[in-house]
Amino acid sequence: MLSPRSAEVVRATLPVVGGAINDITAVFYPRMFAAHPELLRDLFNRGNQAAGTQKQALAGSIAAFATALVEHPDERPDAMLSRIAHKHASLGVLPEQYPIVHEHLFAAIVEVLGDAVTEEVAAAWDEVYWLMANALIEIERRLYAEQGVLAGDVWSTWVVAERVEETGVTATFRLRPADDSAEVAPFRAGQYVSVRVPLPDGARQIRQYSLTDAPGARERTITVKREEGDPAGEVSNRLHDTVRVGDTLEVSAPYGDLVLDDADGPVLLASAGIGCTPIVAMLKQLVEDGHRAPVIAVHGDRAPDAHALRDERAGLVGKLPAGTDLTWYEHPEQPWPAERTGLVDLSDVELPEGLHAYLCGPLPFMRSVRAQLIERGVPASDIHYEVFGPDLWLAAA
């Protein structure tokens, strides 16, 4: 991993660089987009840029990677790298884009920290960057190869075969390959695809949506929640307002590392809001596999009329021999049990030994559920999560 001298320098300067990393990323992105406007137009999520969440996620990942290098020099933080690499692969990120990031990131470091960036400090952090970048490039190369595509060539054309209005703000799109003879990449329950959408200003913005099909399906089914604000909701609103049956969409190969283990033991699937989508795919897999151990499906939502895929989810849980379906609503329709009004509370839920938990939803929800599970004795290593958008869990760690 890090050379001994670089490890010593990074350990000594980590408080300074880590403390300034948000200022560094605030300089980095405008520099890079000024030099390469096509990256903001066609690759980076403009909504995340406007909200500042991408900046926070990048800062968190760099700080976490550097910390791991100096605190655990014989280990590589593969879980963090895998999550980033899957997202990059779904966007079609190329190896030649890493030198672009390097150029503008290090210029931003020098601009923010000034004389504190000696040649020795610059060389040590350069080593950190390329250790992380080369690891991601290698993982992404493998991910592309697994899907049988050239690096970055992840896109294919799909036709909207059906559109279903799930709630007032969510719609399901069932897609089939535009070429009926085309080979369809396999996927695992819990994975997502990217959808690349042309916008009126000429941009082609990309968003990720979890697949709700059972593994092995030839179709691709996504459920899209209409997001508020511009540019935060520019893609979801475009899909809701303009895409109808017979239209085509550019869709990536499937990626994502939140997938069910092959174990036959007890499972807890916890979701909130539109986080229900990968959970539905996992339930379909469990049903198809004839899973007989306990499955606890937990969901939190604002109100029943906001709960997308509610009936489908309940039907799937009902097909499991030891399935339990528990839902909390903040504003329920009456009659509704008081103990399941408000936020998800697992204090009275029986948790079997050997439980593996899978979480998807807003970050505060997942933090709360994870804390409750750990307090109840579930090992942190057995709690898995998926974040829609930039992974701010790292940034807040």
Rank of each mutant, 00 (worst) to 15 (best):
M1W: 04
L2S: 02
L2Y: 02
V9C: 00
T13Q: 14
N22Y: 11
I24L: 05
M32E: 12
E38V: 10
G52H: 05
T53G: 01
A57G: 03
S61T: 14
T67S: 06
V70E: 09
D74P: 03
D74N: 11
M80H: 10
S82F: 02
G92L: 09
H102V: 01
F106V: 11
L113I: 00
A116Q: 14
E119K: 03
I139Q: 02
A151M: 07
T157Y: 05
V159R: 13
E166F: 04
G168L: 03
A171W: 09
P177W: 07
P177H: 10
A185E: 10
G190P: 09
R204M: 12
Q208A: 02
L211F: 02
P215L: 00
G216K: 07
E219W: 00
R220C: 08
E228C: 07
E228K: 08
G229W: 02
A232R: 14
R244E: 15
L249W: 07
A263L: 10
G265S: 10
G265I: 12
L268Y: 13
I274Y: 00
C276F: 03
L286Y: 12
G290M: 00
I296V: 15
P304H: 01
A308E: 02
L309V: 11
G323I: 12
T324H: 06
T324L: 09
Y329T: 09
Y329S: 06
P337Q: 13
T341F: 05
S347D: 15
S347N: 08
L351A: 12
P352I: 10
P362L: 09
P364C: 08
R367C: 06
R376F: 10
G377F: 06
S381N: 11
I383Y: 01
F388P: 07
G389V: 13
